[in-house]
Write a protein that binds this DNA or RNA. Structure first.
Lengths: 192, 192
DNA sequence: GTCTATAGCGCGATAGAC
DNA sequence: GTCTATCGCGCTATAGAC
Protein backbone atom coordinates (compact mmCIF):
# COMPACT_ATOMS: atom_id res chain seq x y z
CA UNK A 1 0.00 0.00 0.00
CA UNK A 2 2.80 2.43 0.92
CA UNK A 3 4.60 1.73 -2.34
CA UNK A 4 1.96 3.74 -4.18
CA UNK A 5 2.91 7.31 -4.84
CA UNK A 6 1.75 9.99 -2.44
CA UNK A 7 -0.80 11.46 -4.79
CA UNK A 8 -2.52 8.10 -5.12
CA UNK A 9 -2.47 7.49 -1.36
CA UNK A 10 -4.06 10.89 -0.80
CA UNK A 11 -6.78 10.09 -3.31
CA UNK A 12 -7.43 6.66 -1.78
CA UNK A 13 -7.78 8.05 1.73
CA UNK A 14 -9.87 11.03 0.62
CA UNK A 15 -12.26 8.79 -1.29
CA UNK A 16 -12.72 6.52 1.70
CA UNK A 17 -13.40 9.50 3.98
CA UNK A 18 -15.88 11.12 1.60
CA UNK A 19 -17.78 7.87 1.09
CA UNK A 20 -18.18 7.56 4.88
CA UNK A 21 -18.52 11.18 6.05
CA UNK A 22 -19.31 13.32 3.02
CA UNK A 23 -17.24 16.08 1.39
CA UNK A 24 -18.06 18.73 3.95
CA UNK A 25 -17.14 16.61 6.96
CA UNK A 26 -13.86 15.45 5.38
CA UNK A 27 -10.82 17.64 5.94
CA UNK A 28 -7.17 17.90 4.93
CA UNK A 29 -6.34 17.19 8.59
CA UNK A 30 -8.12 13.82 8.40
CA UNK A 31 -6.16 12.94 5.27
CA UNK A 32 -2.96 14.13 6.90
CA UNK A 33 -3.52 11.82 9.88
CA UNK A 34 -4.30 8.80 7.71
CA UNK A 35 -1.58 9.21 5.08
CA UNK A 36 1.13 10.37 7.48
CA UNK A 37 2.14 13.60 5.82
CA UNK A 38 1.43 17.20 6.80
CA UNK A 39 -1.50 19.29 5.60
CA UNK A 40 0.77 21.59 3.59
CA UNK A 41 2.07 18.61 1.61
CA UNK A 42 -1.45 17.73 0.53
CA UNK A 43 -1.87 21.28 -0.76
CA UNK A 44 1.23 20.72 -2.91
CA UNK A 45 -0.61 17.91 -4.75
CA UNK A 46 -4.08 19.47 -4.65
CA UNK A 47 -3.87 23.24 -4.10
CA UNK A 48 -7.57 23.63 -3.30
CA UNK A 49 -10.08 21.13 -1.93
CA UNK A 50 -12.08 21.45 -5.13
CA UNK A 51 -9.04 20.22 -7.11
CA UNK A 52 -8.95 17.12 -4.93
CA UNK A 53 -12.67 16.41 -5.27
CA UNK A 54 -12.57 16.92 -9.03
CA UNK A 55 -9.60 14.55 -9.47
CA UNK A 56 -11.38 12.04 -7.27
CA UNK A 57 -14.62 11.92 -9.25
CA UNK A 58 -12.76 11.72 -12.54
CA UNK A 59 -10.69 8.78 -11.27
CA UNK A 60 -13.81 7.11 -9.87
CA UNK A 61 -15.71 7.52 -13.14
CA UNK A 62 -12.82 5.99 -15.07
CA UNK A 63 -12.45 2.97 -12.77
CA UNK A 64 -16.14 2.32 -12.43
CA UNK A 65 -17.12 2.66 -16.08
CA UNK A 66 -14.20 0.50 -17.17
CA UNK A 67 -15.51 -2.33 -14.98
CA UNK A 68 -19.03 -1.80 -16.31
CA UNK A 69 -17.74 -1.93 -19.88
CA UNK A 70 -16.11 -5.25 -19.01
CA UNK A 71 -19.52 -6.57 -17.94
CA UNK A 72 -21.11 -5.29 -21.14
CA UNK A 73 -18.45 -6.94 -23.28
CA UNK A 74 -18.89 -10.38 -21.70
CA UNK A 75 -20.89 -13.20 -23.29
CA UNK A 76 -23.52 -13.50 -20.54
CA UNK A 77 -27.26 -12.99 -20.89
CA UNK A 78 -28.83 -9.72 -19.78
CA UNK A 79 -30.05 -10.83 -16.32
CA UNK A 80 -26.54 -12.07 -15.51
CA UNK A 81 -25.00 -8.79 -16.66
CA UNK A 82 -27.53 -6.89 -14.58
CA UNK A 83 -26.76 -9.01 -11.53
CA UNK A 84 -23.04 -8.36 -11.98
CA UNK A 85 -23.69 -4.66 -12.34
CA UNK A 86 -25.70 -4.59 -9.11
CA UNK A 87 -22.88 -6.60 -7.54
CA UNK A 88 -20.61 -3.56 -7.92
CA UNK A 89 -22.79 -1.66 -5.47
CA UNK A 90 -23.05 -4.62 -3.12
CA UNK A 91 -19.26 -4.79 -3.10
CA UNK A 92 -18.94 -1.16 -1.95
CA UNK A 93 -21.30 -1.77 0.94
CA UNK A 94 -19.58 -5.04 1.88
CA UNK A 95 -16.02 -3.76 1.81
CA UNK A 96 -16.86 -1.17 4.46
CA UNK A 97 -19.10 -3.23 6.75
CA UNK A 98 -21.95 -1.08 5.53
CA UNK A 99 -20.82 2.46 6.14
CA UNK A 100 -19.59 3.51 2.71
CA UNK A 101 -21.89 4.63 -0.08
CA UNK A 102 -21.19 5.17 -3.78
CA UNK A 103 -18.96 8.25 -4.12
CA UNK A 104 -21.41 9.86 -6.52
CA UNK A 105 -24.40 9.21 -4.26
CA UNK A 106 -22.62 11.20 -1.57
CA UNK A 107 -21.53 13.95 -3.94
CA UNK A 108 -25.02 14.02 -5.44
CA UNK A 109 -26.40 14.78 -1.99
CA UNK A 110 -23.90 17.56 -1.37
CA UNK A 111 -24.09 18.73 -4.99
CA UNK A 112 -24.92 22.38 -4.32
CA UNK A 113 -21.75 22.80 -2.24
CA UNK A 114 -19.50 21.43 -5.01
CA UNK A 115 -17.55 23.34 -7.62
CA UNK A 116 -19.09 23.35 -11.09
CA UNK A 117 -16.44 21.05 -12.57
CA UNK A 118 -17.03 18.38 -9.91
CA UNK A 119 -20.79 18.74 -10.24
CA UNK A 120 -20.50 18.18 -13.98
CA UNK A 121 -18.48 15.00 -13.40
CA UNK A 122 -21.10 13.65 -11.00
CA UNK A 123 -23.76 14.37 -13.59
CA UNK A 124 -21.69 12.51 -16.17
CA UNK A 125 -21.39 9.47 -13.88
CA UNK A 126 -25.15 9.07 -13.73
CA UNK A 127 -25.61 9.69 -17.45
CA UNK A 128 -22.94 7.17 -18.47
CA UNK A 129 -24.40 4.51 -16.20
CA UNK A 130 -27.84 5.17 -17.63
CA UNK A 131 -26.53 4.66 -21.17
CA UNK A 132 -24.87 1.38 -20.28
CA UNK A 133 -27.98 0.05 -18.52
CA UNK A 134 -29.99 0.80 -21.64
CA UNK A 135 -27.66 -1.50 -23.59
CA UNK A 136 -28.26 -4.31 -21.10
CA UNK A 137 -32.01 -3.73 -21.11
CA UNK A 138 -32.23 -3.78 -24.90
CA UNK A 139 -30.24 -6.99 -25.02
CA UNK A 140 -32.63 -8.47 -22.46
CA UNK A 141 -35.70 -7.39 -24.37
CA UNK A 142 -34.30 -8.81 -27.59
CA UNK A 143 -33.40 -12.19 -26.11
CA UNK A 144 -36.67 -12.28 -24.14
CA UNK A 145 -34.97 -12.50 -20.76
CA UNK A 146 -36.11 -9.10 -19.43
CA UNK A 147 -39.64 -7.75 -19.76
CA UNK A 148 -40.80 -4.17 -19.75
CA UNK A 149 -43.26 -2.26 -21.90
CA UNK A 150 -42.11 1.35 -22.30
CA UNK A 151 -38.97 3.38 -22.86
CA UNK A 152 -35.80 1.56 -21.76
CA UNK A 153 -34.40 4.93 -20.68
CA UNK A 154 -37.08 5.16 -18.00
CA UNK A 155 -36.17 1.73 -16.66
CA UNK A 156 -32.46 2.57 -16.79
CA UNK A 157 -33.01 5.77 -14.81
CA UNK A 158 -35.11 3.83 -12.36
CA UNK A 159 -32.29 1.36 -11.80
CA UNK A 160 -29.66 4.07 -11.33
CA UNK A 161 -31.87 5.90 -8.82
CA UNK A 162 -32.75 2.70 -7.06
CA UNK A 163 -29.14 1.66 -6.52
CA UNK A 164 -27.90 5.09 -5.42
CA UNK A 165 -30.85 5.42 -3.06
CA UNK A 166 -30.53 1.89 -1.76
CA UNK A 167 -26.98 2.57 -0.59
CA UNK A 168 -28.14 5.50 1.53
CA UNK A 169 -31.10 3.65 2.96
CA UNK A 170 -29.16 0.42 3.49
CA UNK A 171 -26.72 2.25 5.70
CA UNK A 172 -29.53 3.23 8.07
CA UNK A 173 -31.32 -0.11 7.97
CA UNK A 174 -29.74 -3.51 7.88
CA UNK A 175 -26.74 -2.88 5.63
CA UNK A 176 -26.13 -5.40 2.85
CA UNK A 177 -29.30 -7.50 3.46
CA UNK A 178 -31.38 -4.41 2.76
CA UNK A 179 -29.64 -3.81 -0.56
CA UNK A 180 -30.16 -7.47 -1.43
CA UNK A 181 -33.90 -7.21 -0.81
CA UNK A 182 -34.04 -4.13 -3.04
CA UNK A 183 -32.24 -6.10 -5.74
CA UNK A 184 -34.70 -8.97 -5.34
CA UNK A 185 -37.61 -6.53 -5.65
CA UNK A 186 -36.21 -5.21 -8.91
CA UNK A 187 -35.53 -8.63 -10.41
CA UNK A 188 -39.02 -9.74 -9.33
CA UNK A 189 -40.50 -7.06 -11.57
CA UNK A 190 -38.00 -7.18 -14.40
CA UNK A 191 -37.23 -10.87 -14.91
CA UNK A 192 -40.29 -13.10 -14.84
CA UNK B 1 -44.83 33.86 7.78
CA UNK B 2 -43.46 36.18 10.47
CA UNK B 3 -46.51 35.54 12.67
CA UNK B 4 -45.18 32.06 13.39
CA UNK B 5 -43.23 31.75 16.61
CA UNK B 6 -39.45 32.01 16.47
CA UNK B 7 -38.85 28.35 17.14
CA UNK B 8 -40.96 27.42 14.12
CA UNK B 9 -39.26 29.97 11.90
CA UNK B 10 -35.86 28.60 12.90
CA UNK B 11 -37.00 25.07 12.07
CA UNK B 12 -38.43 26.15 8.70
CA UNK B 13 -35.25 27.92 7.66
CA UNK B 14 -32.98 25.16 8.95
CA UNK B 15 -34.94 22.53 7.06
CA UNK B 16 -34.72 24.48 3.83
CA UNK B 17 -30.97 24.96 4.24
CA UNK B 18 -30.32 21.31 5.06
CA UNK B 19 -32.39 20.10 2.10
CA UNK B 20 -30.30 22.30 -0.20
CA UNK B 21 -26.82 22.21 1.35
CA UNK B 22 -26.71 19.31 3.80
CA UNK B 23 -26.30 19.34 7.58
CA UNK B 24 -22.57 19.94 7.55
CA UNK B 25 -22.73 22.95 5.22
CA UNK B 26 -25.61 24.53 7.16
CA UNK B 27 -24.65 26.80 10.05
CA UNK B 28 -26.26 28.82 12.84
CA UNK B 29 -24.96 31.91 11.04
CA UNK B 30 -26.96 31.03 7.92
CA UNK B 31 -30.10 30.62 10.02
CA UNK B 32 -29.35 33.87 11.84
CA UNK B 33 -29.16 35.76 8.53
CA UNK B 34 -32.39 34.28 7.18
CA UNK B 35 -34.53 34.52 10.32
CA UNK B 36 -33.18 37.89 11.43
CA UNK B 37 -32.10 37.03 14.96
CA UNK B 38 -28.62 36.52 16.39
CA UNK B 39 -26.77 33.23 16.69
CA UNK B 40 -27.02 33.26 20.49
CA UNK B 41 -30.82 33.44 20.27
CA UNK B 42 -30.90 30.26 18.20
CA UNK B 43 -28.86 28.53 20.90
CA UNK B 44 -31.58 29.54 23.37
CA UNK B 45 -34.10 27.44 21.41
CA UNK B 46 -31.70 24.67 20.38
CA UNK B 47 -28.66 24.56 22.69
CA UNK B 48 -26.67 22.26 20.41
CA UNK B 49 -26.88 21.68 16.66
CA UNK B 50 -27.80 18.08 17.31
CA UNK B 51 -30.89 19.26 19.23
CA UNK B 52 -31.98 21.25 16.19
CA UNK B 53 -31.45 18.39 13.76
CA UNK B 54 -33.26 15.95 16.02
CA UNK B 55 -36.28 18.26 16.40
CA UNK B 56 -36.29 18.78 12.64
CA UNK B 57 -36.42 15.10 11.70
CA UNK B 58 -39.10 14.39 14.28
CA UNK B 59 -41.25 17.21 12.93
CA UNK B 60 -40.63 16.08 9.35
CA UNK B 61 -41.57 12.49 10.16
CA UNK B 62 -44.80 13.65 11.79
CA UNK B 63 -45.83 15.90 8.90
CA UNK B 64 -44.88 13.46 6.17
CA UNK B 65 -46.39 10.33 7.66
CA UNK B 66 -49.61 12.14 8.49
CA UNK B 67 -50.01 13.05 4.82
CA UNK B 68 -49.21 9.49 3.79
CA UNK B 69 -51.79 8.16 6.25
CA UNK B 70 -54.31 10.46 4.59
CA UNK B 71 -53.52 8.85 1.25
CA UNK B 72 -53.88 5.37 2.75
CA UNK B 73 -57.25 6.24 4.28
CA UNK B 74 -58.74 7.50 1.00
CA UNK B 75 -61.07 5.43 -1.18
CA UNK B 76 -58.84 5.31 -4.26
CA UNK B 77 -57.39 2.21 -5.89
CA UNK B 78 -53.78 1.23 -5.26
CA UNK B 79 -52.20 2.75 -8.39
CA UNK B 80 -53.86 6.08 -7.57
CA UNK B 81 -52.59 5.96 -3.99
CA UNK B 82 -49.12 5.11 -5.25
CA UNK B 83 -49.21 8.00 -7.72
CA UNK B 84 -50.23 10.37 -4.92
CA UNK B 85 -47.46 9.04 -2.73
CA UNK B 86 -44.88 9.63 -5.44
CA UNK B 87 -46.43 13.07 -5.90
CA UNK B 88 -45.14 14.02 -2.43
CA UNK B 89 -41.58 13.67 -3.68
CA UNK B 90 -42.34 15.48 -6.92
CA UNK B 91 -43.74 18.35 -4.84
CA UNK B 92 -40.49 18.74 -2.90
CA UNK B 93 -38.48 18.94 -6.10
CA UNK B 94 -40.95 21.38 -7.69
CA UNK B 95 -41.23 23.79 -4.78
CA UNK B 96 -37.50 24.45 -4.91
CA UNK B 97 -36.96 24.58 -8.69
CA UNK B 98 -35.11 21.32 -8.32
CA UNK B 99 -32.49 21.99 -5.68
CA UNK B 100 -34.11 20.51 -2.58
CA UNK B 101 -34.10 16.82 -1.79
CA UNK B 102 -36.06 14.86 0.82
CA UNK B 103 -34.72 15.80 4.27
CA UNK B 104 -34.07 12.14 5.10
CA UNK B 105 -32.25 11.49 1.83
CA UNK B 106 -29.80 14.23 2.80
CA UNK B 107 -29.51 13.05 6.40
CA UNK B 108 -29.15 9.49 5.17
CA UNK B 109 -26.13 10.55 3.15
CA UNK B 110 -24.54 12.35 6.09
CA UNK B 111 -25.68 9.68 8.54
CA UNK B 112 -22.31 8.91 10.09
CA UNK B 113 -21.87 12.53 11.17
CA UNK B 114 -25.26 12.65 12.95
CA UNK B 115 -25.99 12.08 16.62
CA UNK B 116 -27.46 8.70 17.47
CA UNK B 117 -30.94 10.09 18.23
CA UNK B 118 -31.17 11.81 14.83
CA UNK B 119 -29.82 8.74 13.06
CA UNK B 120 -32.51 6.63 14.73
CA UNK B 121 -35.21 9.03 13.54
CA UNK B 122 -33.95 8.86 9.97
CA UNK B 123 -34.02 5.07 10.20
CA UNK B 124 -37.59 5.26 11.46
CA UNK B 125 -38.61 7.46 8.52
CA UNK B 126 -37.55 4.82 6.02
CA UNK B 127 -39.09 1.97 8.01
CA UNK B 128 -42.45 3.71 8.43
CA UNK B 129 -42.62 4.53 4.73
CA UNK B 130 -41.80 0.93 3.89
CA UNK B 131 -44.67 -0.30 6.09
CA UNK B 132 -47.16 2.03 4.46
CA UNK B 133 -46.08 1.09 0.96
CA UNK B 134 -46.63 -2.56 1.83
CA UNK B 135 -50.25 -1.71 2.66
CA UNK B 136 -50.71 -0.08 -0.76
CA UNK B 137 -49.00 -2.99 -2.53
CA UNK B 138 -51.16 -5.59 -0.80
CA UNK B 139 -54.29 -3.66 -1.67
CA UNK B 140 -53.13 -3.54 -5.30
CA UNK B 141 -52.37 -7.24 -5.39
CA UNK B 142 -55.76 -8.05 -3.91
CA UNK B 143 -57.72 -5.88 -6.34
CA UNK B 144 -55.55 -7.01 -9.26
CA UNK B 145 -54.32 -3.53 -10.09
CA UNK B 146 -50.67 -4.08 -9.22
CA UNK B 147 -48.65 -7.14 -10.21
CA UNK B 148 -45.59 -8.59 -8.56
CA UNK B 149 -44.56 -12.12 -7.65
CA UNK B 150 -42.51 -12.09 -4.46
CA UNK B 151 -42.38 -10.47 -1.05
CA UNK B 152 -44.17 -7.09 -0.96
CA UNK B 153 -41.50 -5.87 1.47
CA UNK B 154 -38.89 -6.19 -1.25
CA UNK B 155 -40.99 -4.08 -3.60
CA UNK B 156 -41.68 -1.54 -0.87
CA UNK B 157 -37.98 -1.20 -0.11
CA UNK B 158 -37.30 -0.86 -3.79
CA UNK B 159 -39.77 2.01 -4.04
CA UNK B 160 -38.36 3.83 -1.00
CA UNK B 161 -34.81 3.51 -2.34
CA UNK B 162 -35.89 4.52 -5.81
CA UNK B 163 -37.56 7.73 -4.66
CA UNK B 164 -34.80 8.80 -2.28
CA UNK B 165 -32.19 8.07 -4.94
CA UNK B 166 -34.20 9.75 -7.70
CA UNK B 167 -34.21 13.02 -5.80
CA UNK B 168 -30.42 13.06 -5.62
CA UNK B 169 -29.96 12.08 -9.25
CA UNK B 170 -32.73 14.40 -10.48
CA UNK B 171 -30.92 17.34 -8.98
CA UNK B 172 -27.86 16.62 -11.15
CA UNK B 173 -29.80 15.78 -14.29
CA UNK B 174 -32.93 17.46 -15.54
CA UNK B 175 -34.77 18.10 -12.27
CA UNK B 176 -38.45 17.17 -12.19
CA UNK B 177 -38.59 15.55 -15.68
CA UNK B 178 -35.98 13.05 -14.53
CA UNK B 179 -38.03 12.11 -11.47
CA UNK B 180 -41.09 11.74 -13.71
CA UNK B 181 -39.27 9.34 -16.01
CA UNK B 182 -38.21 7.27 -12.99
CA UNK B 183 -41.83 7.19 -11.87
CA UNK B 184 -42.92 6.07 -15.33
CA UNK B 185 -40.30 3.33 -15.29
CA UNK B 186 -41.66 2.04 -11.99
CA UNK B 187 -45.30 2.13 -13.08
CA UNK B 188 -44.34 0.41 -16.34
CA UNK B 189 -43.13 -2.58 -14.34
CA UNK B 190 -45.69 -2.53 -11.57
CA UNK B 191 -48.98 -1.68 -13.27
CA UNK B 192 -49.62 -3.57 -16.49
C1' DG C 1 8.29 17.11 -2.27
C1' DT C 2 7.94 17.74 2.51
C1' DC C 3 8.40 20.44 6.32
C1' DT C 4 7.26 24.40 10.21
C1' DA C 5 4.72 28.19 11.09
C1' DT C 6 0.98 31.03 10.67
C1' DA C 7 -2.58 33.85 8.58
C1' DG C 8 -7.49 34.58 8.40
C1' DC C 9 -11.86 32.97 8.73
C1' DG C 10 -16.20 30.61 10.19
C1' DC C 11 -17.74 27.41 13.23
C1' DG C 12 -20.47 25.82 17.67
C1' DA C 13 -21.06 27.29 22.04
C1' DT C 14 -21.20 30.20 26.50
C1' DA C 15 -21.48 34.30 29.84
C1' DG C 16 -23.93 37.82 31.32
C1' DA C 17 -26.56 42.38 30.54
C1' DC C 18 -31.14 43.93 29.42
C1' DG D 1 -36.25 35.80 24.77
C1' DT D 2 -32.91 38.53 22.59
C1' DC D 3 -28.88 40.91 22.74
C1' DT D 4 -23.34 41.97 22.71
C1' DA D 5 -19.14 40.06 23.31
C1' DT D 6 -16.02 36.55 23.29
C1' DC D 7 -13.80 32.00 23.70
C1' DG D 8 -11.49 28.13 21.62
C1' DC D 9 -11.28 25.27 17.91
C1' DG D 10 -10.80 23.41 13.21
C1' DC D 11 -10.83 24.72 8.77
C1' DT D 12 -8.59 26.05 3.96
C1' DA D 13 -4.79 28.06 2.34
C1' DT D 14 -0.08 30.33 1.94
C1' DA D 15 4.98 31.66 2.80
C1' DG D 16 9.27 30.22 2.96
C1' DA D 17 13.13 27.01 4.83
C1' DC D 18 15.19 22.58 3.80
Amino acid sequence: MNDKDTRTRILDVAQDLIQRLGVNAMSYQHISDAVGIRKASIHHHFPAKEDLVQALVERYNGFFLEVVDGILASEADAPTKLARYIGLFEATLSESQGDKVCLCAMLGAELTTLGSASAASVRRFFAENEDRLIVILEQGRQEGSIRFAGDPRHIARMIVSLLEGAMLVSRTTGGLPYLVSVRDGLLDLLVH
